[in-house]
Write a protein that binds this DNA or RNA. Structure first.
Lengths: 346, 346
DNA sequence: TGTTAGCACTCGAATATCTTGAGTGCTAAA
DNA sequence: TTTAGCACTCAAGATATTCGAGTGCTAACA
């Protein structure tokens, strides 16, 4: 068990290092006002903390930097004690959501923007999983004799559209019939049940009422399949470049490559989905490449159901306290905002 | 006027330097098979070329590199002479457009992706100016008693949607009337004329048939105003990082910042809009920051009318010949593909 | 007159050497 | 248990050294 003093020293080192990105020496700590023990004492404590694995030295005669284990302790134990309410932040976050943005996508984008702007880290926002939304209306608008647009509107106000070629042997009235049937049958059923519904009754109905159904089905099935994949929004990648840990172009490249491959980010974020606030430090992360990168995630909910998550990516040397405050606030605000947006059944 | 031999040497230097990014010395040129004059001769010629401003030395005892003027000459005179048809390229570019992608946005994205993949430079694609497209249909789909989605479909198959709050004092039947009037009046008129139309007859009609028009107008005008601003698609920013001219993080940062501010890129691309193929070398560019960056742009057209442009951004030390070939092909393919997409009046 | 070989000279880049100072660990005394 | 003191370490920065690719110039040659 760590003594009060040891905790103090660990905290001091993390705080210092987070700010300066330089190893922290015993003297610099002993100079603090509220420290009444000497540098030598601190050195002894440091040595102990190092033995326990909370600190490291970049080289044998340098100051200490926190190890991952050190950060972990800091985040888990030292942060909880601190006051979690810097009022300035809260209000400014809440303002964002009060300005009643009414498109889901706009809200997500804005969230990402604010998140990265406030923290100077990279923000990732995973759009809400739409699997529970229901079809509100399906609409076909012909553009010409050969092409038409299919428009899917969900009860959340999410709109998807796809241009498609009208199959040769399909008349306009056929098309209308086709759409009507789909509309009647699928309206108000959750998108995730479509596949199942489709293959049963509906298929029978269609086959019965629409000529050349088989052929048409092939051509159109793609157009009417909603993409359920949630979108990912980034913001503030440039912030990363300002950090000294990215002074090497090669690393920047790796990082950007990793971010560009959204699949990876997606699965990482998704994995955190049921866990509320999460702090992954350094190699705890899946992405082994980045030893000195941490990631904080938080989830947001609609009507109490967790539907997505937002994240912050920064150096392990991160302002955890501030970042956690901000991301928590954002997640809360996002939840409120989305719940309001989705609640049409008033 | 430059002699044949001087042109040859200039070309050799550009070609070499483009590949290696290292200053080119006289000996390395004299070693070429088709060179039957000595290094000393080349040195003399080089000195002359330098006097004329086509070459530079990074320092007094190094090999030569092309100056902007040198690149300019290379692009303007030396490239035109060469065979412009490496068959391999052309077919592979054309294939892309044969695969009948049917969403405009998808085509633009794909264009950007292919462009950067083939060249290893950054590609910029400016979406087609939609000012000539016409409204096909305007549709309102209520989500609840308080919210609805407005959907605009243009004759090009472009769909835009916006969620909005239904004004308190507006009944559903009012809303329907409202939409019907707009539909009747605006259908088949080009989007750019909307503003004008709106403020005249239509406003009168609306005022006549819809209660509380003034108040409603305020709330809804935003929802029905199409954003005409063309989209910008990038691709291949990572390619840049591989270039030695970007080994400095600071510069990478500047570049990404510049690209992120789409306004600038937009205006630059837009300025090129009426000029077909364009090659801007180094400081000829508006963006003075980047002395060693070149930009190639080409325009594409729908039915013969230029509607947008695509660009490639790379180091001044660029494979101009190849890049020009590729971008030209892409622009052509894009024109064909879009013309086909927009031509519904068959 | 144009071309070439030869040679002294230049200068960046890579490498080695020196210096400095922040920081440590250990010891011995308070 | 704490602290002062001191020898020791090592990265980082400053200087010096070496190396070689490349130049310009001169003089000889065709």
């Amino acid at each position: 068990m760590l003594s009060r003093r040891q905790l103090y020293i660990l905290q001091a080192i993390v705080d210092d290092y987070v700010q300066t990105a330089e190893p922290v020496g015993s003297r610099s700590i002993s100079k603090r006002e509220d420290v009444d023990f000497s540098a030598a004492t601190i050195r002894n404590e440091m040595a102990d903390l190092e033995d326990m694995g909370f600190l490291m030295k970049p080289h044998s005669s340098s100051g200490r930097i926190p190890s991952h284990k050190g950060y972990r302790l800091y985040v888990d134990q030292l942060l909880n004690e601190t006051d979690n309410n810097h009022l300035g932040l809260i209000t400014s976050v809440q303002q964002l959501f009060d300005s009643r943005v009414s498109e889901v996508e706009a809200v997500m984008r804005k969230t990402a923007a604010v998140l990265s702007e406030m923290t100077n880290y990279v923000s990732v926002v995973l759009g809400p999983a739409m699997s529970n939304t229901k079809l509100k209306q399906l609409q076909i608008i012909p553009l010409s004799t050969t092409q038409a647009v299919a428009i899917l509107v969900t009860d959340s106000g999410h709109v998807e559209n796809r241009t498609f070629d009208i199959p040769h042997n399909m008349s306009l009235s056929d098309l209308e019939k086709f759409v009507n049937i789909l509309n009647e049958q699928l309206a108000d059923s959750p998108i995730k049940q479509w596949e199942a519904l489709m293959s049963n009754e509906i298929e029978r109905l269609l086959r019965q009422h629409v000529d050349h159904y088989e052929k048409i089905h092939q051509d159109l099935s793609a157009a009417f399949k909603p993409k359920v994949n949630e979108q990912i929004f980034y913001n503030g990648m440039l912030n990363l470049l300002a950090q000294p840990e990215f002074k090497d172009v090669e690393k920047v490249k790796q990082m950007l490559e990793w971010l560009e491959d959204k699949k990876e980010v997606y699965s990482l974020l998704n994995a955190m989905n049921s866990q509320g606030l999460t702090v992954k430090i350094g190699e705890e992360n899946r992405f082994e490449l980045f030893d000195d990168i941490s990631m904080i995630t938080a989830t947001y909910a609609i009507d109490g159901d967790t539907v997505g998550s937002i994240g912050l990516i920064g150096p392990t040397r991160m302002q955890y306290e501030r970042a956690i405050q901000i991301i928590t606030q954002m997640a809360d605000g996002l939840s409120t905002s989305l719940t309001r947006l989705y609640r049409h059944d008033a």
